[in-house]
Amino acid sequence: MNLFRFLGDTAHLASILVLIHKMHTTKSCRGISFKTQALYVAVFVTRYLDLFYRWVSLYNFFMKLFFIGSSCYILFLMKTKFRPTQDPAIDTFRIEYLLGPCTVIALIFNYKFSPTEILWSFSIFLESVAILPQLFLLQRTGEAETITTHYLAALGIYRALYIPNWIYRYFTEGVVDPIAITAGLVQTGLYIDFFYVYVTKVLQGQKFELPA
């Protein structure tokens, strides 16, 4: 464990708490893509199957439980309490276009051709693109509540911090995980456009609005 990864995980945890806080305080999940949230459940469940057979650390164990539990809780809130505030008409990204290619790529690129390793690869590739329905929704509406942008910013920071973590691990432990690194770079890249608007508008106290 190094500081970059710890802060990255903390940002990830914070992003989820921000999202849950947004839903409870605004009593709404407006502007949140159900599809992205559902993809995150798929990501966590397929990746953390190793809860049953691999012990890493107490930290790792509880974080995994938190990510699975909180992502399921978010889906539950979106399907029950806040269902009326959800607008499927604007959440139109076709997730088959993500699930299909991720399945194929996971079958080709994995560390071992075994069910759990293929699912692990799948979860890494799927996480890298799971934010796309959310960014697509944002693009369609052209604006976002400030709290929603803080959620996305925290997620982006989480991904960005994993990059110095890998550089650090390469030099200190000689560890290289090409699958995680490739997918992670793609994932971080997806946030660049968002971050430009976040820094130039939201952090200057303006509303998040995309140029027409």
Partner: peptide, 10 residues
């Protein structure tokens, strides 16, 4: 040893 199988990150 092959560290790529460690899967110790979240």
């Amino acid at each position: 040893s092959d560290h790529s199988h460690k899967h110790d990150e979240l």
